[in-house]
């Protein structure tokens, strides 16, 4: 077992355990903080897969943006001083059974399938390649996403101000 495997198991454990606490902790603020560790773990998994640029984007956009947004959502929609911030769960047992069944089927089929797996060398820095793809092959998608983000910005601001 080399260092790569150990680091993988470490990040996988961080990701899955903190994701488990995200969906089971009763206090929603704690859930938001556990989500931070999940995002960090996923970023580590991206690094292990050789996606350094995506890992950095994950940290900047998810941890710096979406998580802060979610925390604002929590703070603005709950009375911090009351017990309201502890939110309940409904139908935990049937959901757990169904989800466990789904996860079992998915994992069994994924492990059972003979995926086309090519042994390739760990890719070097990916930023330049992604940049070239974004302005050549995916130029239209890139522009459309820019417009989409502008629309989302205006829409969210105007909806939240009403």
């Amino acid at each position: 077992m080399n260092i790569y495997d150990i680091v993988f198991y470490l990040f996988a454990a961080i990701t899955v355990l903190s994701a488990f606490f995200v969906v089971t902790t009763r206090n929603i603020v704690y859930s938001a903080y556990y989500l931070l560790f999940t995002f960090f773990g996923v970023a580590g998994i991206y690094v292990l897969l050789g996606a350094d640029f995506i890992a950095m984007v994950q940290l900047i956009v998810y941890v710096g943006g979406i998580l802060i947004l979610i925390l604002f959502g929590v703070m603005l929609t709950n009375k911090i001083t009351s017990v309201e911030i502890k939110t309940g769960s409904v139908q935990v047992v049937p959901a757990a059974v169904g989800v466990a069944l789904l996860a079992g089927i998915l994992m069994a089929s994924m492990v059972d399938t003979k995926w086309r797996s090519v042994e390739t060398a760990m890719p070097s820095a990916t930023t330049q390649g992604i940049g070239m793809l974004l302005i050549q092959q995916y130029a239209i998608v890139f522009e459309l996403l820019g417009i989409l983000l502008l629309i989302a910005l205006i829409g969210a601001a105007s909806m939240a101000r009403k």
Partner: peptide
Amino acid sequence: LVVSTALFSLGIFGIVTRRNAVM
């Protein structure tokens, strides 16, 4: 793939069981 399946299942579990919209 197993890690991503576990994350997916936990996400489904959270969506189905939690009452708070932010959750």
